[in-house]
Computed example of a mutant assay.
Amino acid sequence: MSDPPVRGVDVGPDTRCGHYHTDRDVVAFKFACCETYFPCYRCHEEIVDHDAVPWPRARFDEPSVLCGVCRSEFPVPAYLEADYCCPSCDAAFNPGCAAHADLYFETEE
C-alpha cells in the first residue's frame, strides 16, 4: 500500500511545507472538502479553488491525521490525546497547530 499523497507548497518528504518547516512540522491533516491531506491550512488555501471544510466530528473515527515521519494515519481523537507526538512512532508534533485546530477539524463549540 502506498503512502497517501500530501498536497501543498514545497512539501518535503516529512510533510513540512513552505509555510511551516520546523523540526516539529511533520503532521498533515485531511480536509473533508476534498478528502486530501495538506501540511497546513495555508497550503490548502493556495493549492485548491474551494473553501476549506474541516474534518467533521461525525467522522472522528476515521483516519484523518498523517505523521510525516512514519506515515501512519490515525483519527483526530488519537492525535488530540497524544500530547503533540505521533501515537505510532513518537515523533514530536508542533504544539502551535492547536492555534489552528478549528481549521483542521470540528472543535467543540
Rank of each mutant, 00 (worst) to 15 (best):
R24C: 14
R24Q: 14
R24M: 12
R24P: 02
D25M: 08
D25A: 10
V26F: 04
V26P: 08
V26Q: 00
V27L: 06
V27M: 09
V27S: 04
V27Y: 01
V27A: 12
A28W: 00
A28H: 10
A28M: 07
F29E: 10
F29D: 01
K30S: 03
K30N: 12
K30Y: 06
F31Y: 00
F31A: 15
A32S: 11
A32Q: 09
A32F: 04
A32E: 06
A32H: 04
A32P: 04
A32Y: 00
C33K: 10
C33W: 09
C33T: 10
C33S: 14
C34G: 10
C34A: 01
C34H: 06
E35V: 05
E35W: 02
E35Y: 05
T36M: 09
T36P: 11
T36S: 14
Y37I: 03
Y37V: 08
Y37G: 09
Y37R: 08
F38L: 07
F38T: 13
F38G: 01
F38H: 15
F38C: 15
P39C: 05
P39M: 09
C40L: 10
C40R: 00
C40T: 01
Y41W: 08
Y41E: 09
Y41N: 12
Y41M: 11
Y41P: 08
R42D: 10
R42A: 07
C43H: 07
C43Y: 07
C43I: 00
C43R: 10
H44Y: 01
H44D: 01
E45Y: 10
E45D: 12
E45H: 08
E45N: 04
E46N: 06
E46D: 15
E46A: 09
I47Q: 13
I47S: 12
V48T: 14
V48R: 01
V48A: 14
D49N: 15
D49T: 13
H50S: 11
H50C: 14
D51T: 14
A52G: 13
A52C: 03
A52L: 04
A52P: 10
V53K: 11
V53W: 07
V53R: 10
V53T: 15
P54N: 09
P54F: 00
P54A: 13
P54C: 04
P54R: 01
